[in-house]
Nucleic acid binder design. Structure first.
Length: 570
DNA sequence: TGGGGTCCT
DNA sequence: AGGACCC
């Protein structure tokens, strides 16, 4: 067997793809049951983004223009779905629920989840060997069996999928569809075969049949418009054509990596793992608008967005450290999606952290607004006429708050019973090297073995835990908890241009990191290099501020919680 | 055509 | 910062 196809016969996993039926519409029908028996759609601006199945019977499709939808189905009742808040909340509840079945649950949008059920299946097979019957539809006519045992595993997978769908229905009154197969691609494709409130099982021997039912290469998830266009230029439009296209031609067009990826996909081969999603890495809002031409309108819209955004941040519970402003300029007819964005770091001290919420006091809100407007002027010359058709704000680089359930103490308690997704760290995140982690997610993230910290990190974690005891541990009043919500990365905050960590080291004439005189040298020695850097930067900044205050004794700067404070000797 | 997200370059 | 992809 040649190495290219070494995975073609690997059917060792059982993947379940769960797709909540017309998700937004279902949520709206839960909120208002009167919508259940009439054609209804969810509207965002001029688009009906989804609809219930009654409306679909009349010919309404996803993402249909309002005009067309009304023409096809004049009776359709439309609900505004521009604020995704409720959808988002229910979506995360469903994902959290799914995590009871497997630690590997990957979100895709708000309405889809992949679940790796392999170990669940193995467990089930050990205790049960009779009455194993496929649940739901089976795709294709299964003539030749595969002898690797996948048949049995996938069959058990279909039983599990049925259980999961039943439980989602009972817990949330939500119907969903599922696909069961040996990889993500196939699970997703086969799940689409029977749609509302059904499930479909694929045995590997029917893979080709499934693939050849697709009309075009862009029907394969992973091949989008850009690649589709390039493939068209290569004379490729069907799956079969992609399967048989000369690999060197494909390689020339896309590079070896991409070429192999998409040709594998065209053969139903997808080795990508189900990646645990954890918390979002960015939280943002957008508002498209007809015609914004005045600076006052811009500020107004941005303030509204910020108010809504703070609700989301507060619910999330982490402190963001960068903000990004996105705009779309009116551009008569050129390419769509011509967005521009600018981002900058922000001080965590902007946020007032209470036990139950995160807020922006007025002064902070004003400061934030002004930094956002600075970003705006980097993209728009406000002295000339302009025309903005979209404004968006989003937060990234979150700092974990180390209290409550996600605290380090609960980490050591090994309290691993199905945590809510909002408390789960990216423990499977292999893309982030330890040195790139923020200091306070450092000890919680990147632990490869389920929930056990690796030996190296334990030492550091214990140090942090000890220090925490000094400050707040025994009396977690809101004011004390605030001490734990540290203000970090002063150096990055000071420099207005976002710079790499490499660059931010050299913002002073002294590049070397020292232990500040007021910090316990033994502790300092044990913490990671980057953390040392932060502490040292805090110290330097404090010294600089003292200098400034000597020059301007009138100005009183509010005392901030710095990382340095955290490590100060008593 | 919306209002989100993720990862890679 | 933008571009690809996903819903």
């Amino acid at each position: 067997m040649d190495t290219k196809n070494i995975h073609a016969t690997d059917h060792s996993r059982v993947i379940i793809h769960i797709d909540i039926d017309c998700f937004y519409a279902q949520v709206e029908m839960i909120k208002n049951p009167e919508l259940r028996n009439i054609p209804m759609g969810v509207q965002q601006k001029n688009v009906v983004v989804t609809s219930n199945y009654i409306a679909r019977e009349t010919g309404i499709k996803k993402c249909m223009l309002l005009e067309d939808a009304l023409r096809i189905c004049p009776k359709i009742v439309l609900v505004n779905g521009e604020d995704l808040h409720d959808y988002r909340q229910i979506s995360y509840k469903v994902t959290t629920h799914l995590q009871k079945y497997s630690s590997q649950v990957e979100r895709l949008g708000l309405d889809e989840n992949f679940l790796d059920a392999t170990s669940l299946v193995e467990t089930k097979l050990k205790s049960k060997h009779e009455n194993i019957t496929a649940k739901g539809h089976i795709f294709g006519n299964n003539e030749n069996n595969c002898d690797c045992g996948c048949q049995l595993r996938l069959t058990v997978g279909s039983e599990i999928a049925q259980e999961i769908r039943d439980s989602i229905r009972h817990e949330f009154q939500l119907t969903c569809s599922a696909g069961i197969a040996h990889n993500k691609l196939l699970a997703k494709l086969v799940g689409a075969k029977h749609k509302p409130n059904q499930q479909t099982l694929l045995y590997p021997n029917s893979t080709c049949e499934l693939l050849y039912q697709l009309q075009n290469v862009v029907d394969i998830p992973g091949i989008g418009r850009a690649m589709g266009d390039m493939l068209k230029n290569l004379g490729v439009s069907t799956i079969r054509e992609l399967q048989h296209l000369n690999f060197d031609k494909l390689k020339f067009a896309f590079g070896e990596e991409k070429a192999k990826l998409i040709q594998n996909l065209s053969n139903g081969i997808d080795n990508s793992p189900v990646k645990s999603s954890g918390k979002p890495t960015s939280i943002g809002l957008e508002d498209s608008c007809r015609n914004i031409t005045a600076i006052g309108e811009v500020k107004d819209k941005l303030n509204q967005l910020m108010n809504r955004l703070m609700v989301l941040v507060s619910e999330d519970g982490r402190i963001p450290r960068t903000i990004k402003l996105t705009i779309r300029k009116f551009d008569s007819i050129s390419k769509m999606s011509n967005r521009e964005s600018r981002q900058t770091n922000i001080t965590t001290s902007l946020f007032t952290v209470k036990s139950n919420s995160i807020e922006l006091q007025q002064k902070s809100a004003q400061r934030l607004t002004s930094t956002i407007m600075t970003l705006f002027t980097k993209m728009v010359d406000v002295h000339k006429p302009y025309h903005i058709t979209l404004l968006g704000l989003s937060f990234t680089k979150f700092l974990e708050r180390m209290n409550g359930k996600s605290s380090i103490t609960s980490f050591f308690r090994k309290n691993v019973e199905v945590q809510s997704i909002t408390n789960i760290e990216n423990k499977n995140d292999l893309t982030t090297s330890p040195m790139e982690c923020t200091p306070f997610s450092y000890d919680l993230s990147g632990s490869e073995s389920e929930f056990e910290p690796s030996p190296k990190k334990t030492k550091f974690s214990k140090l942090i835990a000890k220090r925490r005891c000094f400050e707040a541990d025994d009396c977690p009043s809101p004011s004390k908890l605030k001490v734990a919500d540290l203000r970090l990365s002063s150096a990055k905050n000071v420099s207005s241009d976002s710079s790499d960590s490499k660059n931010s080291f050299s913002d002073d004439n002294s590049n070397s990191i020292c232990c500040p005189p007021n910090v316990d040298a033994a502790v300092f020695k044990e913490i990671p290099k980057e953390l040392q850097q932060e502490v040292w930067n805090d110290y330097k900044r404090e010294m600089n501020e003292k200098q400034e205050q000597k020059l301007q004794p009138v100005i009183k700067k509010p005392k901030t919680n710095t990382l340095l404070n955290y490590f100060l000797k008593n």
